[in-house]
Write a protein that binds this DNA or RNA. Sequence first.
DNA 1: GTGGCGTTAGTCGAAATCGACTGATAGTTT
DNA 2: AAACTATCAGTCGATTTCGACTAACGCCAC
Lengths: 185, 185
Amino acid sequence: MPRRALDNPLVLAVLGLLLEGPSHPYQMLADLQKRGSSRLNRGTLYDIVDAVAAAGWIAPEDRSRAGNRPERTVYAVTPSGLTELRRRLDEQIRTPEREFSRFLGAVSYLGALGAEGAADALTERAERLSSRIAADREVLTSIVSSGVARLHMIEGEYALAVAQAELDWVTTVVAEIRAGELTWP
Amino acid sequence: MPRRALDNPLVLAVLGLLLEGPSHPYQMLADLQKRGSSRLNRGTLYDIVDAVAAAGWIAPEDRSRAGNRPERTVYAVTPSGLTELRRRLDEQIRTPEREFSRFLGAVSYLGALGAEGAADALTERAERLSSRIAADREVLTSIVSSGVARLHMIEGEYALAVAQAELDWVTTVVAEIRAGELTWP
DNA sequence: GTGGCGTTAGTCGAAATCGACTGATAGTTT
DNA sequence: AAACTATCAGTCGATTTCGACTAACGCCAC
C-alpha cells in the first residue's frame, strides 16, 4: 500500500480534474498536458491514480472499451475525495512554501558566468519570456472573451503576473550589469 | 552508471557549492539547507554526488577524519566540471521553463472552495507572505550592508521580487472576490 | 563516570518514478 | 491490399529517491 505516494502534487490535480467529470487516466494525462503541465509521466500518473483509488478518494465507475482497445477504467471522485480535495486546496493556499525553480538555482551562481556572460544569457531569457507572455496573454483574453468563466482561467492570470514580475526583474538586472552598477567581485 | 540522475537540479547546486571551495556531502547539505532549500534528502545528495563524481565533474580530494568519526570524503570541482557548470547555468538562464508550484496547482481549482472559502484562504496566504517578505528583506539588507557582495545575494533579490508579485496578485484577487467582481459560476 | 541529548557522517533496503515496450485501431500512402 | 504512421491505453522492469538506521563524538548534568 503506497503511503508516501499520496504526498505527490499530482493527487490534487487528479482530484481536481475528476471534479469536472469522470475520466480515465489516459484522458487525464492529455488534459493535464494541455493545461501546460510539462514533465509528467504516464506510468507515474497510473501509479498515483491507483494510490488515490486505494485511499478511497476516487472510485472506478465504468470499465468501457471502444472496439477491441485496452479497457479504460473511468474514475469519479467519491464524497471523501471531495472533502480531501477541499482540505488540500485550503492548506496549500494558506501556507506559502519556498519553492526552488531551476532559474532560482541558476541565478545563485550567476557569478560563474562573468558579467558579460550573465548579461547575455539574461537578455535572451528576457526576450523569450516577453514573447511568451505576449502569446499567453492573447490566448487568455481570447478564451475569456469567448465566454469561459474568468474563474476557470484564474491560474493563467496568476502565472502571467508572476512571469511579468520575473521579466521586470531580469530586465532591471541586465540594465544594472550593463551600467556597471552590479559588479563582479 | 546512473545516467538520468545527472538531470537532477541538485547537480547544479553541487557544482555551484564546490566552486566556492572543496567540501564533503554532509557539509553541502548544511549549506544548501541554510540557503533555504527545503525538501532535500541526505541520501539523495549522496547519490547525486556519486553520480557527479562518476561523470568526472568533481573528484575526491581528501579522505580526512576527525577523531574516529566516519571518514568524510572531500570533493572539488574538476576543470570539466567547471565547463559543465557554465554550460548548465547558461542554458537554464536562457530558457524559461513553465514550472508548476503547489500554489499554481491549487488556484487552478479555486472554484471548489467557494467564494468565501477562497477569499479566506487567500487572505491568510497574503498575511503570511507579507510577513515573510518583510523578514527576508530585512535579513537581505543587513547581510549586504555587512559587506557581502551584492552579487552573492542576487538570488535573494529575485525571490523577493517574485514573492512581492505573488502578494500583489493575491491581494487584488481577494479584493475582487470581496467586491463581487470575480464571480462563482 | 555514566546517562542522556544533539551533531556529525554515511549506508542501505524499501518505495516511488520513469520510460521503453506491447498491442490494438484508424487513417493514409504506394 | 500491404505497408506505414499516428493515436489510444496500459504494463512492468530498471532507475532514482527516500528516510530509517548505525555509530562515534562532545558536552552537560547528576
